[in-house]
Structure formats: C-alpha cells, structure tokens
C-alpha cells in the first residue's frame, strides 16, 4: 500500500507543490475504497514511515476528513 501510494506521488511530484498535493489527495479520494484510505490515514498517524511527503500530507488530510466527515 505504501508503495502504491508513493508511486502516485512519483507521478504528481512533477507538478508544483500545491498542485502535486491536491493531485495525490484527489487521486486517492477518487479511486481508493474507504477501507484502504483509512488504513493509509492510520498508518500516517502512527508515524507514516517511508511515506512520500506528498502522500503523508494527503493522508493527514484524509485523517482530518474522517475526524470531521461533514467537511
């Protein structure tokens, strides 16, 4: 899963930082089922070892969204 997420980041990092972050986040939200998104969020919450910075940022966003689902 970490590899899969990092390879998404490998693609988007060609873009400027803000767009790259949004790109990774949007991709994961659009294509990953909720259980995988949760796993990624949890993993990031426990340190997120080995996650590409763009993935770590996206996973943090996912965690926030889970915490306040109305957002």
């Amino acid at each position: 899963m970490i590899d899969m997420a990092n390879r998404i980041a490998d693609y988007f990092q060609a873009y400027p930082e803000e767009r790259a972050r949004e790109g990774v986040l949007e991709h994961i939200r659009k294509f990953w089922p909720p259980n995988m998104r949760s796993q990624l969020a949890v993993y990031q919450g426990t340190g997120g070892d080995g996650l590409h910075p763009l993935v770590a940022w996206s996973a943090a966003q996912l965690r926030e969204m889970e915490a306040s689902p109305g957002k």
Partner: peptide, 8 residues
Amino acid sequence: EPGMRIPN
C-alpha cells in the same frame, strides 16, 4: 464511495 478493484 469507490469500491475495490480486483487486486484490492
């Protein structure tokens, strides 16, 4: 919410 792909 999106579902799982075959590998998932």
